[in-house]
Design a protein around this nucleic acid. Structure first.
Length: 709
DNA sequence: AGCACGCCGACT
DNA sequence: GTCGGCGTGCTC
């Protein structure tokens, strides 16, 4: 369009709006405007009877063949108010969103609007002005002078080496940048065990970027982990403004922090996966801590991987990205093997502390009584007693909340199935309920078997509640605390419980994987995993990788102080002591584990040696969901990439029915990303059409790079 | 997703 | 005669 034409001051704007993709609106919509607003501006636009906030998107390139029909000007509606006070979102931000939307098969509008602070959408120009004024006041009140940073600890030789290599990488990059065609610095995979000082490397790298007047983005997997990391960064960079960005903030805080980043006033942004989309006009470094963590993958809506998008964003911005982990994802590990990523290692714990000694206890040695009634073997209890006598703390990890996963009638065989899901309801003794962890259905625990009236119904298996009870019985003098999703439901409960542990008011801490992440317990010298075996035989091909990471992370909780490291132990109770995974863990040998896993993946044609997507369908009946998927599969067979991309038959999901909805999925496997993307693109319009034909279908969704299949 | 329009059952 | 059930279809 020609904006210089004075004869017609009306121009066309493409605006991305939050119209869900199944509405058929995939691309930004055209509107009329009397003003040529720059792309990235926020505007109110009418859509049907509604007035929505949209983002002015980039005009289509002139050479784009008119895909879809171009509407005549007369069919277009004028835009509403524009939020001119807000600087436009940058080209690179829009490119990141274009990429994310197309890669994960969603509309740009949906993704772009969903990653803005929700409050920003509600505001009109006037209200926004108010917020900006408030922000400026806040900024002035907390004036940051950019003063020299606080005292820094001396680097270990390994840290110094890693930082030197980072520097070299940046220098090489700058040299090649002169040619103008530089791809940006290679992503760095920082492999270092818990306590090896990865955070100090992040801090130094951040300092480097800050000194150049750039902004730094740090991603963590969980909200719980932001406060302590924020404290660490705040302490180091006292002269710099640091904000967090995650879904736990109040709407007002989230808007304020987002604006601070967008206006360049916040120099450090720390957040969970949604923060990967933070608007940061002077971005100079991205850090992804615990890059292997599954929480980086969004599980609904646009199913993006914040880690992968962080790598893409760094590439767009030509800035370094550091992926840190003690147990890198096999995808990242493989990228490092092929040289796409640069691997840097911190092989030792700081201060010469060793990782805790691993003791594998063979559960087959348990005296055979009437089945296994306790989760705790005698030798483990003895080890706990020893810690108790020395005044040291222990941590017991069991990835199952509640008292027992199933309630069972020995008389007629009744089990506590959920009436709405294909799963058992979990027995929660605390509030005497049977609770379904999938749909939330909860009932008071029956006194007798609901089928045969037998009074003697028994819990089967172990949950954290039961473990807590058994510990209290076996070690009456111990102060036992439990941390899981149930004990931390109330706001502030987690902080309070962690505080009690740190204050030494707890001898034994029982919990789910919640306690294995991040928290730095100085006085723990014993970590035990009492029932990790289930993951060994899971049908999920990533289960071993996750288990290894989880156990390694749990082990890292023990003996972080060098003085106690020597007597720190990690106990593993298993029925399969010879399993290769445990044997690698015994030697703290991630590399051997990764190597064997990669070999298995390669022979099975699984990621990272292939690329996957899932087509999921939900319906009231299996037939409806299956009918849709089968029709979709038939159509996929007619697409040009059908020769290279494999579409497997539909199968029920591992929990096939949730809240009376049947869930099936179909695996799509491709040797290359390109072929997979092409097929998905060509498939999508037909999937929308099929949804209309298959009336019983409730929902369908595509999951690109799914974590579990 | 919203929010219409639209075409059939029990109510003041 | 009308209030309202949720099926179907559209939004630049």
């Amino acid at each position: 369009m020609d904006l210089s034409g004075v004869s017609n001051p009306i121009c066309r704007l493409r605006v991305a709006v939050d119209a869900p993709q199944h509405s058929g609106i995939g691309a930004p919509l055209d509107y009329l405007s009397e003003q040529a607003l720059p792309p990235g501006s926020l505007v109110q636009v009418p859509l049907g009877k509604r007035e929505l906030t949209g983002i002015v998107w980039d005009p289509l390139p002139a050479d784009a063949d008119a895909e879809g029909q171009v509407l005549p000007d007369t069919a277009l509606r004028p835009i509403g108010q524009a939020l001119l006070e807000l600087p436009p979102l940058t080209l690179n931000w829009r490119r990141l969103l274009d990429f994310a939307a197309s890669y994960y098969q969603r509309s740009v509008g949906e993704v772009a609007l969903s990653v803005l602070p929700p409050q920003l959408r509600e505001l009109d120009a006037k209200q926004l002005q108010g917020r900006l004024k408030k922000l400026h006041k806040w900024v002035e009140a907390e004036a940051k002078d950019g003063a020299p940073s606080a005292q820094r600890p001396e680097l270990s030789p390994a840290q110094a080496e890693v930082l030197a290599q980072l520097d070299a990488l940046l220098l090489a990059e700058r040299a090649s940048d002169a040619t103008g065609s530089a791809p940006g610095p290679a992503p760095v995979l920082l492999h270092g065990v818990t306590g090896s000082g990865k955070t100090e490397v992040y801090l130094r790298a951040a300092e480097h970027a800050l000194n150049q007047g750039r902004q730094v983005l740090v991603l963590v997997p969980e909200i719980n982990l932001t406060p302590q990391l924020e404290a660490r960064f705040a302490e180091r960079f006292q002269g710099h403004r640091i904000v967090s960005l995650h879904s736990g903030l109040t709407p007002a805080q989230r808007l304020r922090n987002w604006l601070a980043a967008h206006l360049g006033q916040a120099e450090l942004v720390l957040g969970t996966r949604l923060a990967v989309f933070a608007s940061m006009p002077r971005l100079g470094l991205i850090v992804v801590d615990e890059e292997h963590d599954p929480s980086y993958k969004q599980q609904d809506g646009a199913r993006y991987s914040a880690r992968d998008l962080a790598v893409y964003r760094a590439h767009l911005e030509r800035v370094p990205v550091i992926l840190g982990s003690a147990t890198p994802s096999l995808e990242s590990w493989q990228h490092a093997n092929t040289g796409r990523y640069r691997r840097l290692a911190l092989p030792q714990r700081i201060g010469g502390g060793a990782m805790p000694r691993l003791r594998i206890y063979d559960m087959n040695l348990l005296p055979r009584k009437q089945g296994v009634t306790t989760a705790l073997a005698q030798p483990l209890l003895a080890a706990l007693r020893e810690r108790l006598q020395r005044g040291e703390q222990s941590l017991i990890f069991l990835n199952r909340r509640g008292y027992a996963p199933v309630l069972h009638c020995g008389e007629c065989g009744w089990k506590s199935e959920c009436p709405h899901c294909s799963a058992y309801r979990v027995f929660h003794k605390g509030d005497r309920t049977l609770r379904c962890h999938h749909c939330g259905f909860s009932e008071r625990v029956p006194r007798a078997c609901p089928d045969c009236g037998n009074q003697d119904i028994a819990p089967l298996g172990q949950g954290t509640e039961r473990l807590e009870e058994q510990l209290a019985a076996a070690l009456p003098e111990a102060r036992v605390a439990r941390i899981d999703a149930d004990s931390t439901r109330l706001k502030g409960a987690l902080e309070a419980q962690l505080g009690a542990v740190h204050a030494g008011e707890v001898d034994i801490l029982v919990g789910t994987q919640m306690i294995t992440k991040g928290h730095d317990f100085r006085r723990i010298t014993l970590v035990a995993a009492v029932n990790p075996d289930a993951a060994l035989f899971s049908s999920d091909f990533r289960a071993p990788e996750r288990l290894f990471a989880l156990l390694m992370q749990a082990a890292g909780r023990a003996g972080r102080d060098a003085e106690v490291a020597a007597r720190s132990e990690m106990w593993l109770q298993t029925w399969h002591p010879q399993h290769a995974l445990y044997q690698s863990l015994l030697r703290h040998d991630f590399e051997a584990f990764a190597k064997s896993q990669l070999a298995e993946r390669e022979s099975a044609g699984l990621p990272p040696y292939s690329h996957l997507a899932l087509l999921r369908a939900e319906a009231r009946t299996v037939e409806a969901a299956q009918g849709f998927l089968e029709a979709a599969a038939r159509h996929a067979g007619t697409l040009p990439d059908a020769q290279t991309v494999l579409v497997y038959p539909p199968v029920p999901m591992s929990v096939a029915r949730v809240a009376n909805v049947e869930r099936l999925q179909m695996l799509v496997e491709s040797p290359t990303r390109g072929a997979l993307q092409r097929l998905l693109w060509q498939w999508m319009p037909e999937l929308h059409a099929l949804k209309r034909e298959h009336k019983g279908l409730l929902r369908w969704a595509v999951d690109v790079d799914p974590l579990a299949i």
